[in-house]
Design a protein around this nucleic acid. Structure first.
Lengths: 283, 283
DNA sequence: TGGCGGTGTTAACAGGCTGTGAAAGGCGCC
DNA sequence: GGCGCCTTTCACAGCCTGTTAACACCGCCA
């Protein structure tokens, strides 16, 4: 169902194991900037075992050098960059929007972490930490980035008058944001991903909320209502979310008929705008 | 209730799977990836009793090996896969869209569950859990998947001018929805699946409604009436549902004669319009 | 031919499901 | 601590559906 995504992904199919050095399935190129040799050593051991391409540094390299490396991710401890740490972080993040940046450093205040993440870091890990956790987070970060980049490469997903940008968690129509909240966007994305399949409420709830839907919960309905409202506001000539009574919802961009756009059912449109069967026209 | 689906499942007999009794009606092939031997043991006991084909692993096998197993479902505890757990999940779900994937693991955060489900897992069960629940969920998941896969592989089912889409709970003719309600669709699906066999009212009722039909209940007749009406509206040149007097109904796409389409029974209809009660044709 | 049981057809009803608006509750931000 | 946004819950209205009943029609049989 979601295979349009992996169709675009640039990773070869062979899914194999540790040995060998050639870049393999899921392997990433990454660099570590850190003066803590023990940490770097342990980490590099692990990364080699996974076949990732890996480079370690102890100070900030020129930006263009980083660019040339075509990295997937960067692990950095700003401590070793002294006062220029924040600057560097900001520059890297703005110059390489496709790069996953993970800050891994000793104790820090909440304010520092917030600042770092605001400057564009994707994640913040506090030392001491287990290499596995660092790796897992790097993978998560890289996946997010990959996804966003894919989005960029293939162009935003367009259906009807809508433009859905995964990288912004937002839908646009005619260049204007529909101003969806996070959950609204998630519900929309799920429906869009289903490619016209009807999704049951339970399934929607489970995939978006992450746990089983309590009997009688109307959250999904309410969010669909909000989505419809915002989508209609942004793109009045289209209908996107269709109800299947007793089952659930289905996404399909559908142009409204002229009559529907002007006045709602002016006089005798005895049937629903969407689909209908008029024997006369079909015969 | 929907055991007609089983008829479609195709398990080749030759395989290197454990020597269980020959696959029986409703039995599934499944694999469990989990290092928790106690859990696996209890589960396997249960599964053997049900005659399901079952294989247990403690680490992630290569993808192509999984493919070769022709599984219906996979139960996995990503914990035992370490940092690659998410990757594995993602790969499996995208490479095997027909496979039902159930994550069964210890405590987890909402974020984790959402992530897992969005990567393509079908359900998420938290340990400790009762084997019965796991099995019930696997069945539900496998049913959903099989349905989606069947649809995908065989393409939409087409009979006469009708196109039946399981994923939309709907029938189409000439690209237009027949606007069937859920129950109408279920009755139609049952009749279509019977492949031209005559089904008794009692059987139809039992399978669709889920319990025995009360004596004198006319629900099936009413639904057949509604179906005929909607199907004729969508596809006027065809007759789909045939009555067998004193027995029940049979589905067969049949092109009407020109005379029948133009005027309903002009005067001397030498042949019954709907090919109704004609035991001779069925023999 | 008339009676009888099975089926076609229609309409009305009750209940369930969904749409909708608003209020209450949470949560993060300032 | 106050504030605002988002989420969730609640209540009510309206629509859709499944069900039942009633009547018309058809084929079979005496």
């Amino acid at each position: 169902m979601r295979d349009h995504l992996h169709a675009v992904a640039s990773f070869p199919d062979s899914s194999e194991l540790p040995p060998v050095a050639s870049p393999q399935q899921g392997a990433l190129r990454l660099a570590v900037i850190d003066a803590d040799s023990g940490f770097v050593h342990v980490l590099s051991k692990r990364l080699e075992g996974m076949g990732w391409q890996f480079r370690s540094l102890t100070s900030a390299p020129p930006l263009d050098e980083l660019v040339a490396q075509r990295l997937n991710a960067l692990i950095v401890d700003p401590t070793c960059l002294g006062a220029r740490g924040w600057d560097f972080l900001e520059q890297v993040c703005s110059a390489l929007p496709g790069l996953g940046v993970l800050v891994c450093t000793g104790r820090s205040t909440v304010a520092q972490r917030v600042r770092g993440l605001r400057l564009g870091a994707d994640d913040w890990v506090t030392k001491p930490c287990h290499p596995s956790e660092v790796i897992a987070r790097v993978e998560a970060v890289a996946r997010r980035r990959r996804r966003a980049r894919m989005q960029e490469e293939t162009g935003p997903l367009v259906v009807g008058e809508l433009e859905i940008r995964l990288d912004q968690f937002q839908a646009f129509a005619a260049g204007r944001s529909a101003e969806l909240t996070r959950r609204e966007f998630e519900v929309l994305q799920l429906l869009v991903d289903a490619q016209g399949q009807v999704l049951q409420r339970e399934e929607i709830y489970q995939r978006v909320w992450g746990y089983a839907m309590a009997h009688g919960d109307r959250s999904v309905d309410v969010f669909v209502r909000k989505l419809r409202h915002k989508l209609e506001r942004s793109s009045p000539a289209w209908v996107y979310i269709h109800t299947h009574f007793g089952i659930g919802y289905r996404f399909e961009a559908q142009l409204k008929s002229a009559a529907d756009v002007l006045g709602e059912e002016p006089a005798a449109p005895d049937r629903p705008p969407g689909a209908l069967a008029d024997p006369a026209t079909s015969a």
